[in-house]
């Protein structure tokens, strides 16, 4: 597996320095991200104030408590600076809480919950349930070679709908409460994301089988409900470094520009 990961990286055609990647380190598990990025040869740095944001080629928003991270982003004066960088196209990889911070819409959040509105997703905080429902599972990922990725979901946010131009790279089967509605579809991962939205609602109170997206990409933004940094598997971070190195519209050129149009509209 190690070799496959390695060759995947070499095949990407990046030169030896894959760039300078910041990892937001206010609260949460930044350490694991830093270690993996450094293993991959990136210059990875902790980000705790506005100065640390300068000169970055990419940024990772790690797992943690999104409410705490939001508050600390505001008190450190980084929020507006970071919002500008994201709006100007900085590649960002958000995992778990990081995904919540990047999503367009958040459900079951606090009333003062804010996001950077960088990827057209509706996300329900802790949508997979409390800690006793947290789990790990193998995940087939579109565009990642070398077998399934072991994904760790910790009080994970649930993606309830995805907008046009968002590419779904992986999904899991999840019994979704019918009252929550929107994802009663057997859409397989990698399909057109917008197809995941459906109006067909099961009778109230029942639960319906659905495949819910857990790894999505839109332009320079990559998000996961799970924690790729907890397993030592560096392939997703390698993928993100490729996004940074090659310019973000790797495959979904149209999708990316659509998302851009939509954001600027």
């Amino acid at each position: 597996m190690e070799e496959q990961q390695g060759s995947g990286r070499r095949a990407s055609g990046r030169h030896s320095a894959p760039g300078r990647i910041g990892v937001l380190a206010l609260q949460g598990d930044s350490v694991e991200h830093l270690a993996i990025l450094r293993d991959l040869g990136a210059e990875a740095t902790s980000v705790r104030d506005g100065r640390d944001l300068r000169g970055l080629d990419g940024l990772v928003l790690p797992g943690g408590e999104s409410t705490t991270i939001q508050m600390l982003l505001e008190s450190s004066g980084m929020w507006s600076e970071l919002a500008l960088l994201i709006a100007s196209g900085l590649p960002v990889f958000g995992t778990c809480a990081g995904m919540i911070l990047l999503a367009s819409r958040v459900m079951d959040g606090r009333s003062d919950q804010r996001t950077f509105d960088a990827i057209d997703l509706s996300v329900r905080r802790n949508g997979f349930g409390r800690q006793v429902a947290s789990f790990e599972s193998d995940l087939e990922v579109e565009g990642i070679a070398g077998g399934p990725i072991r994904a760790v979901f910790i009080r994970a946010p649930l993606i309830e709908s995805v907008g046009p131009g968002v590419e779904v790279m992986a999904s899991v089967a999840e019994p979704v409460a019918a009252r929550r509605g929107p994802l009663a579809s057997e859409q397989r991962s990698g399909g057109n994301a917008s197809d995941l939205r459906t109006d067909g609602r099961a009778p109230a109170g029942s639960r319906v089988a659905a495949r819910v997206p857990v790894l999505c990409r839109s332009g320079p933004i990559l998000v996961s409900s799970f924690h790729p940094e907890l397993t030592g598997d560096s392939r997703l971070h390698g993928y993100f470094l490729d996004m940074v190195a090659r310019g973000y519209p790797l495959v979904a050129t149209e999708a990316g520009s659509e998302a851009d149009k939509q954001r600027s509209a």
Binding site: A25, G28, E32, G64, E65, V152, I154, R155
Partner: peptide, 11 residues
């Protein structure tokens, strides 16, 4: 999974 939540609480 158990340790994972503790890791998210760091700092």
């Amino acid at each position: 999974v158990k340790r994972g939540l503790a890791e998210m609480l760091r700092r």
